[in-house]
């Protein structure tokens, strides 16, 4: 039995780029991957430094019922209603978590677990109720299929075909996230690091927090069809955690998420081509490999300590 296909560099690295059709198809997949990684990496860095990594998990699951209800209400898979539904559900999710925390003896982690599983269960049930007349299937929401990005309908603007709809939406959201974070970096930084100081200089701390949750919900729902609710958390958490092994300032970490996004996308794409598996999963595996490498190679790594220990003449 042959579990792992033979590694043939020509097939893995050159074949996907050998004909114009393949190049056109695969470059759309790659672009989608980059946009997902960049948007999630940026917003994820803030989520991680605020020690809210699990909030990403919670929001990504919590938006599901919003997406389905928007679909049912508008009867179409149009992006607008879906994004709106997702944002509303995401905000409802983060409000409920906060409310539970403040008005009941339940602790933060438990209230997150309660809220997001309830939301997610509601979403899954709604999907199942609708299976008869709807082409939205649970697998797609759970795992995503970035490889099918080029199948999204094209947008026509003033009679001209301007390209793939999914790519435009993701691109726009990525641009919004990156520019808002650059513009309001200072405000987001100070609210994340020291909410009391932020409050004392007159910043609307609560609103900024909700605004971050909104950006998180936006990036998550846009990434949903490519990487799915589960792996989107990997795209949120891995870039900044990996970068933080080498950089101790937030701006450097934020910048570092861009090359990491490129590494995840290309690495994942070719890994998936080799193993013939889901590209999203392969991207997450690449992210894991990068993380382990960073863990081993970072300046304070345990590996160096072992090496130094062996070299030391006193032992």
């Amino acid at each position: 039995m042959n579990l792992i296909p033979k590694f043939d560099p020509v097939r893995v690295f050159l074949e996907p780029w050998s004909t114009p059709e393949l190049i056109s198809w695969n470059s759309q997949v790659i672009l989608m991957g980059l946009l997902v990684c960049w948007a999630s990496g940026m917003i994820g860095s803030f989520i991680v430094v605020r020690r809210m990594a699990l909030m990403g998990d919670a929001i990504s699951h919590g938006i599901l019922p919003g997406v389905i209800i928007a679909f049912l209400a508008f009867g179409s898979l149009d992006v607008g209603p879906m994004l709106l539904g997702a944002c509303l559900a995401g905000l409802a999710c983060s409000f409920s978590i906060e409310w539970l925390q403040q008005n009941s003896p339940i602790k933060k982690d438990a209230s997150m677990a309660i809220v997001f599983t309830s939301f997610f269960a509601l979403g899954v049930t709604l999907i199942n109720l609708q299976t008869g007349h709807l082409d939205l299937d649970t697998d797609c929401v759970l795992y995503g299929e970035i490889g099918l990005t080029p199948l999204a309908p094209n947008i026509t603007l003033a009679g001209n075909n301007v390209g793939n709809r999914s790519l435009w939406v993701m691109g726009l959201i990525c641009l919004i996230i990156v520019s808002l974070i650059c513009l309001f970096y200072r405000q987001i930084l100070v609210t994340s690091f020291d909410a009391t100081l932020a409050h004392s200089i007159g910043l609307p701390v609560k609103s900024i927090q909700q605004f971050l949750m909104l950006l998180l919900a936006l990036s998550t729902v846009a990434s949903l069809e490519s990487v799915g609710v589960i792996l989107v958390v990997a795209m949120l958490v891995f870039p900044s955690v990996t970068a933080s092994f080498f950089f101790s300032r937030l701006p450097s970490i934020l910048v570092c998420t861009f090359p990491l996004g490129i590494a995840y996308t290309f690495g994942g794409f070719h890994l998936a081509y080799w193993l013939d598996c889901s590209i999203a999963a392969a991207m997450a595996i690449t992210a894991t490999v990068c993380f382990i490498a960073a863990l081993g190679l970072c300046p304070n790594s345990f590996l160096w300590k072992i090496v130094a220990h062996k070299k030391s003449p006193h032992n």
Partner: peptide, 22 residues
């Protein structure tokens, strides 16, 4: 109440004191 693992340097923290003036 301070998260000492937050990725900021000493001068970043002190500069935050200036944010209120902007």
């Amino acid at each position: 109440s301070v998260d000492w693992d937050f990725p900021v340097t000493v001068s970043d923290v002190v500069l935050m004191g200036r944010y209120g003036h902007h």
